[in-house]
């Protein structure tokens, strides 16, 4: 069974070598003549103020948490979907209950305004 993954390994090695080759190759082929302007951070010509790594909107974290919930739901749905015919009506009803429980949470998140971007 594992032999099916062998080509993936070869392809991954080939891609990694190609990617590393591009980075190393261009490092040696291209000139490196740094000036203060080139080594600075580009902010449309204005001298950058402070560090970029400051606080940013908490919305991004919320999206990440929601993503984990719903991506896991997708992962649970996949084995169910593949055996859908064998499970029949009872399997379908069970999955509808599962989706329903998650939908309650989804409606809560929606009403709380976590999906609201302005």
């Amino acid at each position: 069974m594992l032999e099916a993954y062998a080509p993936i390994l070869i392809l991954a090695v080939v891609s990694a070598v190609a990617a590393a080759g591009m980075v190393i190759g261009s490092h040696f082929l291209g000139p490196i003549r740094p000036t203060p302007a080139k080594r600075g951070v580009y902010e449309s010509g204005i001298t950058p103020l402070g560090n970029a790594r400051e606080r940013f909107s908490v919305k991004f974290y919320m999206v990440a948490i929601l993503f984990i919930v719903f991506d896991l739901e997708t992962v649970f749905l996949i084995p169910w979907a593949v055996t859908f015919r064998a499970l029949g009506v009872s399997g379908f009803v069970e999955m509808l209950i599962f989706i329903g429980v998650l939908l309650v949470g989804f409606v809560y998140v929606w009403k709380k305004g976590a999906l609201q971007w302005e």
Partner: peptide, 9 residues
């Protein structure tokens, strides 16, 4: 390939 690489400080 032959362009200069820049690394921000």
């Amino acid at each position: 390939f032959v362009k200069e690489e820049t690394y921000p400080d």
